[in-house]
């Protein structure tokens, strides 16, 4: 019974958040480089605000929202019971821990999810940036791409969200935002980690001006 109530609460919450984000941002998805498709993909985007997660989730078509799972930092998003519930029941995110332990692979939860057939939303900067351009990308994206060479990597640029709710503010303001999805890419034969990450980052930045 309790589970059922929580389930309903999660559905209600997701509709509430969708409505809210539409009113505040218009939540416009621009499928510029590829159409939305129910195939396994890794979406990777710039990260400037906690709202990025909600934004890209709202921009996806409803049919994809369940199988496309964002990757979020465990320490931040499980800090309070509400955040934990929000990210697990509503967004169905995959938690990763940011501090490294010698004996575990931080990518393991992601690899499990990929094996289960889910798509991922990654923020390869690892943390929120405050400059105009994203920070250097971390290696996780490359390692996943090597491990799953058949999976399409789709760059995405999230525009304007940092203006909705800058760091340290609690009340969001309405500004129109958009998520632009670019053309899928793959790791080329023999491509080095650094070169690939640079190319991926450039692909994200290039979407800013399309």
């Amino acid at each position: 019974m309790k589970k059922l109530v929580l389930n309903w609460a999660a559905v209600a919450m997701s509709y509430f958040l969708l409505g809210l984000i539409r009113v505040l941002t218009g939540s416009q998805a621009r499928w510029w480089g590829c159409p939305p498709k129910a195939e396994q993909r890794i979406y990777f985007a710039n990260h400037q605000s906690h709202a990025d997660l909600v934004m890209i989730w709202a921009a996806l078509p409803r049919e994809l929202r369940h199988s496309v799972r964002a990757v979020a930092a465990r320490d931040y998003w499980t800090k309070t019971p509400f955040k934990h519930w929000l990210t697990s029941a509503v967004f169905n995110v995959i938690y990763v821990s940011r501090e490294r332990h010698a004996d575990e692979d931080p990518l393991e939860p992601l690899i499990d999810a990929m094996h289960a057939g889910d798509s991922l939303i990654l923020f390869p900067e690892g943390t929120r940036g405050f400059a105009d351009e994203p920070q250097a990308f971390k290696a996780g994206l490359y390692n996943l791409a090597i491990k799953f060479p058949q999976v399409e990597l789709v760059p995405a640029w999230i525009n304007n969200v940092q203006r909705v709710m800058p760091k340290g503010e609690v009340v969001p303001v309405p500004v129109l935002c958009s998520v632009t999805f670019g053309a899928p890419m793959h790791v080329q034969d023999g491509e080095e980690r650094h070169a690939f990450l640079q190319r991926a980052r450039d692909a994200v930045i290039a979407l800013r001006n399309v």
Binding site: G26, N160, R163, E169, V173, P174, V175, L176
Partner: peptide, 26 residues
């Protein structure tokens, strides 16, 4: 509300304007 949202999207507000925007909208 929607007209102002559109207007401000294309205006160069900065992080320091956040409270003013909250004031204007809400």
């Amino acid at each position: 509300f929607f007209a102002l949202r559109e207007f401000l999207t294309l205006s160069p507000t900065r992080r320091g304007d956040h409270r003013s925007l909250v004031l204007a909208f809400f």
